[in-house]
């Protein structure tokens, strides 16, 4: 398959089941909601070393938030429910509770309930106040700037992590420009995050390493500087490869995000140095979710 001069490889992205949750952070203005959200989703690019993958889903205007203030919706993905709950609580405690004017609300009403402010309330040292409003429990925790308001729990649901595609370009600036265009479109899709810095990862990994201590190492088949010294997947004109990783609530959400992202890359086309779109997989043996690029773009 070729779109606008860009070859879409006959391959698939391989993704895994994960657990996910969503939280809504509000603040006095969008600036402070975003600061808090960025802190909460920081150092959360890959479960390999961060314990979770997290990202900002979208900015919410005042009419979309529970307390009528500007807000940001964030999502956190982890391999298991216990790890997810731990990450959520730690991050909420250190990044939202501490952030001026912030408040924290559940972003998923159903699912398994996991603590949001339920345990953060103990920071209140006995001065905390519970309020049950319309069946939802909120905690009012006295803090130095007033009160930190947090919903007691949020929902944990089954989700999928590791959807991806690779952008193969003739130069590094061209690869990055294409990925930026893709991310801009993909951020309009609900229920997905792209957890890497700016949504883009330049250090795609393979499973395993020559070093026993490491369980992942550089994806040498897609490293352009190794074309002459490893079993490469790159043709001679490819000078840079970048990857976009997608975590989402459902298979459909990820497929939709991949479609708009790949389309944005292809819209730049071969004239802008984009030569191929490929994807990362493990031969289909590890992850139950397969996103076939040509089917998605059909």
């Amino acid at each position: 398959m070729i779109i606008n001069g860009v070859t879409i490889d006959l391959t698939f992205a391989e993704a895994f089941p994960m657990k996910a949750t969503r939280a809504i952070i509000t603040a006095q203005n969008e600036k402070w909601a975003m600061i808090s959200a960025q802190a909460m989703t920081g150092f959360a690019t890959s479960v390999i070393a961060c314990g979770c993958e997290a990202g900002i889903e979208r900015v919410l205007d005042s009419s979309e938030t529970p307390d009528g203030r500007p807000g940001v919706s964030i999502m956190i993905f982890a391999m298991g429910g216990k790890g997810l709950a731990k990450q959520l609580e730690t991050r909420a405690g250190q990044c939202v509770l501490t952030s001026p004017t912030s408040a924290l609300f559940a972003g998923i009403d159903g699912g398994i309930r996991i603590p949001l402010g339920k345990n953060l309330r103990y920071f209140g040292d006995g001065f905390q106040i519970a309020k049950v409003i319309s069946g939802k429990r909120y905690w009012r925790i006295p803090v130095m700037d007033g009160e930190f308001l947090s919903e007691a729990t949020t929902g944990q649901v089954d989700a999928i992590g590791g959807g991806n595609f690779l952008v193969l370009a003739e130069s590094q600036p061209q690869a990055l420009a294409a990925c930026e265009a893709a991310i801009e479109e993909m951020r309009k899709i609900a229920n997905v995050i792209m957890p890497f810095p700016g949504g883009v990862v330049r250090s795609g990994s393979k499973v395993g390493s020559k070093y026993k201590a490491l369980n992942a190492s550089t994806n040498d088949a897609f490293c352009p500087t190794l074309k002459g010294m490893t079993k490469t997947d790159l043709s001679s004109e490819i000078e840079s490869v970048m990857e976009i990783v997608i975590d989402g609530l459902t298979k459909e959400d990820i497929a939709k995000a991949m479609r708009v992202g790949i389309q944005a890359v292809c819209d730049l086309g071969a004239d802008n140095g984009i030569k191929r779109i490929s994807a990362g997989n493990y031969g289909g043996k590890l992850g139950p979710f397969h996103f076939h690029l040509q089917e998605i773009m059909a």
Partner: peptide, 13 residues
């Protein structure tokens, strides 16, 4: 005197 964040949610209910 304080501006309390839970009051808008309470009134919305």
């Amino acid at each position: 005197a304080h501006t309390l964040a839970f009051l808008p949610i309470l009134f919305a209910s």
